[in-house]
Design a protein around this nucleic acid. Structure first.
Ligand code: ZN
Ligand code: ZN
Ligand code: ZN
Ligand code: ZN
Lengths: 157, 157
DNA sequence: TTCAAAATGCTAACTAATATCAGGAAGCAT
DNA sequence: ATGCTTCCTGATATTAGTTAGCATTTTGAA
């Protein structure tokens, strides 16, 4: 909770640098994003949660705030297979967006915060002349617990 | 054009194997996907194009056909920043979806058909126990022609 | 305190995508 | 041919996520 406050005021500074204000609505949005980190909530899901902290807030404001945070690279927008935009707070001092593991069996979404692409991106620069600034990487497959379950049920045959 | 016909009949076989028919509407959809390969068209964009070949076709059929092709792994669905689903015909004998380079200056979308992630995916298996079946990788950055233009205008200063 | 700019809430509008449903075509068995 | 079944289709209605418009409120500097 103390960390949260620090983080929020820090984000407030970034907003001020861009000539914008940390209004109560924006504060509530950021704090909810912090609280539900790595949950990949949609704008509407966030809206209902934020309302608990800031009941007067409107849906449009949530959308506007999320757009703002995305532009300032405080948050990242990511879309999985259902086509709904979801939001992640960008980790501090993280240059690039983190990666996601999407289990096709249980539907779970895991995160990888390690940047596995440094070499790949150099290769892309050399071979294709493309200067990578950021990336979106999602792996589709079977998570560790699901493949263990499969193994066990195979033993049972 | 000859190659197209071959490709279409080959896809027709895959449909038959799955107990489905290559109807005129589906044929027209596949042929349009082939014709506009690597254009990353949305369902509605495809719809207006397909109508030229098959004017009686309805939008719902296009959606249904694209779903079908995606399930049979004949096509791949990909979503960029605007949140709209776009469709790529999967290259023959290609295990994984290809990658995309999205230029933030000119908006161009390039493709990389080389699978750069073999080692990364082994790392993911060893470190996280996650068995990768497929992936979605998009790089955001500056394409080669745009960075050359930037260099030239810097010279001009 | 005044005032302009920024931000907000409400609602309507828009768009992509899906669901529904009443036909049609194709395949097979008489 | 005839019926029967299954699959497929087009039109339309509906849903859900998102954006636009606008009047009102809040904010922070002068
Ligand atoms: Zn995440
Ligand atoms: Zn799983
Ligand atoms: Zn592509
Ligand atoms: Zn470019």
């Amino acid at each position: 909770m103390v960390f949260q406050e620090e983080r929020i005021t820090e984000i407030g500074k970034k907003l001020h640098q861009a000539g914008m204000k940390l209004t109560p609505q924006r504060r509530a949005t950021v704090s909810t994003l912090l609280e539900y980190q790595a949950k990949h909530l949609s704008a509407e899901e966030l809206f209902t949660l934020i309302k608990q902290e800031e009941p007067e807030i409107g849906l449009a404001t949530v959308y506007r705030t999320l757009d703002l945070l995305t532009e300032l690279r405080i948050a990242d927008r990511v879309t999985f297979e259902d086509g709904v935009a979801r939001y992640d707070l960008r980790c501090e001092n993280q240059q690039h967006f983190h990666h996601h593991l999407l289990c096709s069996v249980c539907g779970k979404v895991e995160e990888i915060h390690e940047d596995l692409l440094v070499e790949v991106e150099q290769e892309v620069l050399h071979k294709y002349g493309f200067k990578v600034q950021d990336h979106r990487l999602t792996f589709h497959g079977v998570c560790s617990s699901c493949s263990e379950n499969t193994k066990q049920s195979e033993h049972g045959d």
